[in-house]
Amino acid sequence: MALISFENVSKRYLSGQEALSNVSFTLREGEMAFLTGHSGAGKSTLLRMIMLMERPSQGQVVVGEQNLAQLGRRELPYHRRRIGVVFQNHHLLFDRTVFENIALPLQICGYEPEDAARRVRAALNKVGLLDKENQSPISLSSGEQQRVGIARAIVHKPRVLLADEPTGNLDPELSEEIMKLFQQFNRVGTTVLIASHDLSLIERMRHRTLVLRNGRLIADGRG
C-alpha cells in the first residue's frame, strides 16, 4: 500500500525559481528510501511538502489516505503528529533536559505522564542514551544530540519518519551508526525517507534511492 505518493508535483516560488518540477513517486508502507541530489536540488522542499510546511503549486501529495491539499490550518497539527522528523540542526531546546525534549510530542498528543515517561525511556534506550535523560542537550556531543533528535522523532511511533541531512554534521563513523538506527526503525515497520547527499554512505546502505536534479526526479532505483 502506498503511504506517500507524489503526483506530478511542482513548486514554483514567487521569484520564478522552480524548486520541484513534475515529481511523481510512491513510497510503500514500511519502505525505506533515500532522497539525494546536490544542494538546492529540491530535497528539502520535497520533505517539507510531506510535513505541510509548504504546499505544491501543482500536483498533489497524498500521505496515508489523506490528500494534503484538503487539509486546512486547523488539521495541520494532527497531520504532523503522524510524522516524525529529524533535522540536520536537530531543533532541540536547550532550556530543558533531554527527557523533556523527547517528551514534548507525547505531551502535545495528550499522553498520561506515566505512560509518556515509559515511552521516553524506551525511545532513549533505543538510541542508547538512557543514562543522559537528565542532562541538557547542550552538554552532549553532536552525535548524541542527533540521537536525541531521533528519539524525539520516533517516541510517538509515527507511521512515517523523515530525516533531512541527519548526518550532515557527523563524521563517517557516527553517520553510519545513525543510519543503522534508521534501519532498525524501518525493520519494525516505520516508513523511512532520508534526504542526504552522502552518496558513499547511501550506496553502502543498499536501499531505494530517489535522485533529484534541479527539481526533477532523474533516477529511482536501488543504490
Binding site: 525511556r121 524506551a122 511511533k157 519494525v188 515497520g189
Partner: peptide
C-alpha cells in the same frame, strides 16, 4: 544497540490511540 524487549513497539507503523478521557 540494546533494545528493551518489553517496551519496544511491536510495529512502528501503528500509532497508539489515546482515549478521550485521558486526553
Amino acid at each position: 544497540m540494546a533494545v528493551d524487549e518489553k517496551n519496544a513497539p511491536r510495529r512502528g507503523a501503528q500509532q497508539d490511540r489515546i482515549d478521550r478521557r485521558s486526553r
